[in-house]
């Protein structure tokens, strides 16, 4: 997540609407307590880790104790996207689209080795080596798969992160939409629209691919 500049810093451009208001930092605490105990994750399972995520939501580990039992199937109603498993190239456009559809403030957790960095399937031709190459990730939970308790630990890290934020006092002009992340396109390989220039340069003299330096 990009840090919103602090209101109290010098030279911060306060919009006319905001000037009429008074910022009180303690409200942030109340505001954050409300947010931290009602993080609604998206009901969105990808692979093996999703099973552990369901286990974490079930009786034994019980996400409800953290106010997270409301798994929403719609991105429009969720605050947290748990990327639970291997992200494949074929699935990637949907994931980015789902992320764009989530309302702000939103959090992303990369659960397991695959979502963090490709995991054991990293070398595969249809595997994205880390979802953070496309969408910003807040918390990484290592493990293959992380046990439900490891996942809960990761969720507590999200709560800690929420505690430090100042969404109430840090005024963002909500009349302007957030810039969505460009959705990758399925081509001969997945194409990230942000890479157009690099690709065009790279394919001039030959195919663009990884070049590994020789072993000394």
């Amino acid at each position: 997540m990009t840090e919103t500049p602090n209101l109290n810093t010098e030279g911060y451009d306060i919009s006319p609407e905001a000037r009429a208001n008074v910022a009180i930092t303690t409200i942030d605490k109340i505001f954050n307590a409300g947010r931290r105990y009602s993080v609604w994750p998206m009901m969105f399972g990808l692979a093996c880790c999703a099973i552990e995520m369901i286990s974490a939501a079930a009786g034994r580990y019980d996400l409800a104790r953290f106010g997270m039992e409301v798994l929403r199937p719609s991105p429009r109603q969720s605050d947290l996207m748990i990327v639970s498993g291997t992200v494949t190239k074929k699935m990637l456009p949907q994931i980015v689209r789902l992320y764009n559809q989530m309302p702000d403030p939103k959090y992303v957790m990369a659960m397991g080795a695959c979502a963090s960095g490709g995991g054991p399937f990293k070398e595969g031709y249809n595997v994205v080596s880390g979802v953070d190459k496309y969408i910003p990730v807040d918390v990484y939970v290592p493990g293959c798969p992380p046990t439900p308790q490891a996942l809960l630990h990761g969720l507590m890290k999200i709560q800690e992160k929420i505690d430090t934020e100042k969404h109430f006092t840090n005024f963002r002009d909500r009349t302007k939409p957030i810039e969505p992340i460009p959705v990758p396109i399925l081509g001969p390989d997945i194409i990230d629209p942000r890479d157009y220039e690099t690709i065009k340069d790279g394919v001039k003299s030959g195919p663009l691919t990884t070049v590994i330096p020789a072993v000394e």
């Binding site: 990730v137 918390v139 308790q149 630990h153 890290k157």
Partner: peptide, 9 residues
């Protein structure tokens, strides 16, 4: 040790 969640990989 399984509690290894971090903010930066």
């Amino acid at each position: 040790q399984y509690e290894l969640a971090s903010y930066d990989r």
